[in-house]
């Protein structure tokens, strides 16, 4: 069954984690792995390529959304039935891939959103608040209220992976997918996922902090009028 599923992992300066993430995903039986290096300054790309995965490299940093989109396009070329996107810093547990793809294999959903907030007790309080703001503005601008609009752990059916089209390059990509779900009337569901707050991931600079959150909100609003 694993040949029907492609795992897309966008990375930016994750040389310290990407090897373990690939090994962990493989250990769970998923062999079709696409790693997109988004213009890292470190050796993320070469480390990923050494694991014999489909390693793609953005020559310049274009943002998480752009990297995910590149990965999904590569996965579409592989003719797989399900595309899963997950972070490359080791925060996502590959054990959650199975429950994430199940609604698609059962043909009850086109998009499955991994939700960290359905397991709220694991998440730092500041992140719970920040995510609630993200969910509110995503609902306000795009009309669907989900429990974790900023989660990058998601699964798409082949149809959804082909039809979802957004030009969002940065962190607003995750919210724009919600808009695409609504515009294309895709069936979606949310599945609780675990977040592994490892020493490595906690030491990294917060990628979606308060200031970046405001920038993401500005981008979401700007793209509505421009």
């Amino acid at each position: 069954m694993s040949e029907k599923i492609a795992i897309v992992i966008p990375v930016y300066n994750e040389a310290g984690a990407i090897g373990d993430v690939i090994e962990d995903v493989r250990a769970h039986g998923y062999t079709s792995i696409v790693v997109v290096d988004d213009g890292s300054d470190d050796d993320s790309f070469y480390i990923a390529a050494a694991y014999d995965v489909v390693a793609l490299r953005h020559k310049i940093n274009r943002g998480k959304g752009a990297a995910v989109k590149t990965g999904i396009m590569a996965a579409n070329l592989l003719d797989v039935d399900v595309v899963v996107t997950m972070d490359g810093d080791g925060q996502h547990d590959p054990a959650d891939i199975a429950p994430l793809i199940q609604p698609i294999l059962d043909n009850t959903s086109d998009v499955v959103l991994g939700s960290r907030l359905l397991n709220k007790e694991e998440m730092p309080f500041v992140k719970v608040i920040a995510n609630s703001f993200g969910n509110f503005f995503t609902w306000l601008l795009y009309g669907i209220l989900v429990s974790d609009s900023q989660s990058g752990y998601r699964a798409y059916s082949r149809y959804a992976a082909l039809i979802i089209d957004t030009k969002a390059d940065k962190y607003e990509y995750d919210s724009k997918v919600i808009r695409e779900i609504k515009n294309n009337r895709l069936r979606y569901t949310e599945v609780p996922v675990q977040t592994l707050y490892t020493e490595y991931s906690m030491q990294k600079k917060n990628k979606q902090g308060f200031v970046n959150g405001l920038i993401t909100l500005y981008r979401m609003v700007w793209k509505m009028i421009a």
């Binding site: 079709s32 953005h58 020559k59 310049i60 274009r62 752009a66 590149t70 590569a74 700007w222």
Partner: peptide, 30 residues
């Protein structure tokens, strides 16, 4: 905004072109 989008598109096409052989190989395996 338009220029940013174009840069992303060019970057993406280049990345996909460079990995073309590896993608085709995995596609055939699948």
């Amino acid at each position: 905004e338009k220029i940013e989008q174009n840069i992303s598109e060019i970057t993406r096409k280049e990345a996909l072109n460079e990995a073309h052989d590896r993608i085709q190989k995995l596609r055939l395996e699948i």
